[in-house]
Amino acid sequence: MTLPAQKILIIGGGFTGMSAAILLKQLGADVELVEIDPNWRTDGAGITVSGPSLRAIEAIGVLPQFKAQGAITEGVKIFNAEGMQIKEIQTPAVPNSSIVGGGGIMRPVLARILGEATKAQGVDVHLGVTFTRIKEIDEQVHVTFSDGRSGQYDLVLGTDGVFSQVRQALFEDAPTPQYTGQGVWRAVIPRGDVSCAMQYLGPKGKVGFTPVSDTEMYLYYTEARPTMDKFFEAHELVPHLSSLLEQFSAPEVVKIREGLGASSQIIYRPLEGMLMPRPWYKGRVLLMGDCVHATTPHLASGAGMGHEDAVVLADEFKNGGTVHEVIERFQNRRWERCRMIVTNSGRLGEIEKTGGPKEEHMQIMGISMAGLLAPI
């Protein structure tokens, strides 16, 4: 196969970058990936992975590893604060895949799976390295690196996350991530006999639980905070999260709250989002993932959108044409889907933060999930 671009550089070794590296290498491209973190770490607790996101993980080729090291379950049970079940949401089969249900996995575990697949494909990986200069000359992108090397590439992919240095270097007027007025608490706790994802609706917020392995699940709670200048010391984490859960009298939640401790891996993160207007590229440099469509977690699709970006870019490579035709088709296929996720996730957060209409919340959830099930 003659590829639109043979020599490809990927800047950023997160979920999007690794996914793109795997698929483009499978097509026969010469792929180099640089990652600024010398230890190639991914911080965080668990991650909820929607059925449509699992479809992308299956297309990347790592679904068996996900099943072995994560958890895939069907349905979501909704309870009130006292523990009475009020609803059960079915998780339908995902078109064009073998997926039924949704999943969960520890972020570092998913990163390790993708990292191992990236290396197994033979991608040229350089850790502790980033770019110092990007310049397009005569249909080649000339890049110099922080380790003193330089190279010339047919295509460069910026996948270095929400605070992207590639975006900042090439798009001076690009929007920057904005704090949404919410922060999310996450913790890792024993799964027990929990068979599916669950949510408990309290007077001030909801707490959710997603299985992430045979023995563990992760807890998430989204808290409204007017400013993002509050970061928590280690000794504050358990007392604060415990206080947020006091609104729930459900025996299951009470037991979990009482069991929180140093082993719970509690983390807090302010929520930020941004959607960069088109174009997402400049010449032969294309931005992907959180660089251009960073979303809050309300639709469990942040990482999934990055996986989908990689799948769509590889698909457009197969469709052929020039580099610029491929990039333009990629952008046009991704724009509306990513816009929907960022916008609808943001609105769900606003409704939760302000106590807005629950009917609108349910309507947005329904529309969004139907949209996610559509082909990518």
Results as ranks from 00 to 15, higher is better:
Glu352Ile: 02
Arg337Ala: 09
Trp335Tyr: 15
His324Pro: 00
Asn319Val: 01
Glu328Cys: 09
Ser345Arg: 06
Met340Glu: 09
Val326Leu: 09
Lys318Leu: 14
Lys353Pro: 00
Cys338Ser: 15
His324Tyr: 07
Asp315Val: 02
Gln363Gly: 10
Gln331Glu: 15
Phe317Arg: 00
Trp335Phe: 15
Ile351Trp: 02
Glu328Lys: 13
Glu316Pro: 00
Met362Phe: 12
Glu352Asp: 15
Pro357Lys: 04
Cys338Pro: 04
Asp315Ser: 14
Ile351His: 05
Glu328Leu: 13
Val342Asn: 07
Met362Ile: 09
Arg339Tyr: 14
Thr354Gln: 08
Arg347Leu: 06
Thr322Ser: 15
Ser345Trp: 08
Gly349Ile: 05
Glu360Asn: 05
Glu336Phe: 12
Ala310Met: 04
Thr322His: 12
Val326Asp: 01
Lys353Glu: 01
Glu360Arg: 02
Ala310Arg: 00
Met362Gly: 10
Arg347Lys: 14
Glu316Ser: 05
Trp335Gly: 09
Val323Gln: 08
Gly356Cys: 11
Val312Pro: 00
Glu328Asp: 14
Ile364Ser: 01
Leu313Thr: 04
Met340Gln: 11
Gly356Glu: 06
Arg339Thr: 15
Glu352Val: 03
Ala310Thr: 04
Gly349Lys: 09
Thr354Ser: 13
Arg339Gly: 03
Val312Ser: 02
Arg329Val: 08
Asn344Trp: 05
Asn319His: 15
Ile341Arg: 02
Gly355His: 07
Trp335His: 14
Arg333Asn: 06
Glu325Cys: 10
Glu352Tyr: 06
Asn319Ala: 14
Leu313Pro: 01
Arg337Tyr: 12
Glu316Cys: 13
Ile364Thr: 02
Gly321Ile: 05
Glu352Trp: 03
Ser345Ile: 03
Leu348Asn: 02
Arg333Thr: 05
Met362Pro: 02
Arg333Leu: 09
Glu325Gln: 15
Ser345Glu: 05
Gly349Glu: 00
Met340Arg: 10
Arg347His: 13
Met362Ser: 11
Gly356Pro: 12
Arg339Leu: 12
Gly356Met: 08
